[in-house]
Simulated assay, not measured.
Amino acid sequence: MNTLRRWSLCLLLASGCATAPAPREAPPVPNMAALDAEAARAMAATGAKGLALAVIDDGRVVATRAYGARNAKGEPLLTDTVMYGASITKSVFAYLVVQLADEGRIDLDAPIARYLEKPLPDYADEDRYSTWSHLAGDERWRAITPRILLTHSAGFANFGFLEPDGRLRIHFAPGSRYAYSGDGIILLQFVLERGLGLDVGAELQRRVFDRFGMRDTSMQWRPDFARNLADGWMADGTVEPHDERSTVRAAGSMDTTIEDLSRFAAALVRGEGLSPRAFAELTAPQLPITTRSQFPTLQDELPPAQRRGDLAAGLGVVVFDGPQGRGLFKGGHNDSTGNTLVCLPRGRRCLLLLANDVRAEAAFPRLVRFVLGETGVPWDWEYAGRTFWDGR
């Protein structure tokens, strides 16, 4: 039995697996005055201009807060200010895919060729997707499955356009190792839309945004967002205007608010909308992560003795084992955005952080520890070489 199947069965059947130390009890949620004070200290220490957070406890949103400014005019960042979701979009998309698998609409382990009318490289290149024609002559694409795409193990670079020659290629046997890839997520979007005839934007609107009352969330730009919109700050303090993304891209086109995305986070950690088995599958370790850090995406694997045994790819998230038991997290980042979602399924607890200033990321480990206690989030893997604020 391969590692993926064994780890999934360990979680689902709770038998035949090595025992782990008993998880620690979760600390109580800090009171709001203490939380506000800690956020203020974090922003002062990092120079961040804007930060929003949400606390989920026992599957319920117990606090949403916003601090600082949303633009260079100094207009306040509010809990209903529209912010860029960045790559947390991928975890929302993964939730949709697991729902479809739960309903029997798609098989996570079926080759994607089953769902396509013609070979993948034969599809005309479109700006909306990637350049699948670059894969002509490499039949390894036929081994790719939805599970492989959700675990970032198709063998792609992050994006084909980042390759030295700008051409998408497969670097290793699909399913054999983890290497973060936005193009892999976009390929799965392509399979749903071209193979199953689904409109991914409409499906996410109906199954997630409408279901959880996420009124100011969309996979495409909406003109009404302009009234209360967050621009961003880059590491050097330069302001970057909010990008009006007009195309649905499952890898990262979502605009949202801290209020809205907190509702999704609470639903996710409750397993709402999924069968118990599907929820277990979503949060199970699927594939060991064998690299020193997440980026660069195509770095060499560590020797077996140096690999972390507490870190694995889940479906659209990263899964880790820490002092409070199993956890999952997903980050989102660009030059002016820093986001992270950390959830602990055992207590159905999460902390969601959305920052419209990338400098706030230096305070993320401290803020997560302040709210959730020691979790075991692999910050050194997520942010290789980064110096963090330690609270002093």
Rank of each mutant, 00 (worst) to 15 (best):
R366H: 15
A54I: 05
A226M: 07
F225H: 03
R392L: 06
A157L: 08
G309E: 15
E103P: 01
T238G: 14
R369E: 05
T79Y: 02
R207M: 01
Q306Y: 08
A124D: 14
E75H: 10
R70P: 05
R222E: 02
A42S: 07
A124N: 13
A251K: 06
A52S: 09
A143R: 11
F156N: 07
T46Q: 11
G59R: 01
P304Y: 06
V318Y: 07
P323V: 15
A14N: 00
E301M: 04
N71G: 13
C343L: 15
E103G: 06
R326V: 00
F370E: 09
P241H: 14
L77V: 14
I148A: 01
Y180T: 04
R206V: 06
A52K: 03
S176L: 03
A34L: 10
Y178Q: 13
E281A: 09
A110T: 07
G309N: 14
S253Y: 09
G373Y: 08
T79W: 04
D380A: 14
R147P: 00
D80V: 12
I289V: 00
G314L: 05
S246P: 10
R292G: 11
R386F: 11
F93H: 11
Y178A: 04
A86L: 12
D390M: 05
S262E: 02
G252M: 00
S87A: 15
L108G: 11
D210G: 10
A284Y: 00
D57A: 11
G391K: 03
A284D: 00
M32N: 05
L229V: 11
V248C: 07
V55E: 11
E126C: 07
M254C: 15
G252F: 00
D165N: 12
A94H: 00
P378S: 05
Y123W: 04
D102L: 14
V377R: 00
T387I: 13
A69M: 13
Y67E: 11
A54R: 12
S133D: 13
M214N: 02
F329V: 07
Y115A: 03
L135Q: 15
F329R: 07
S262N: 09
P121L: 03
L4G: 02
R263E: 05
G213E: 05
R114K: 05
A278M: 15
L287C: 15
A266W: 02
S15D: 05
R270I: 09
A26E: 12
R348A: 04
A110W: 10
R222D: 03
D216H: 15
G59M: 03
Q294P: 01
L108V: 07
L116T: 01
L351I: 09
L12N: 02
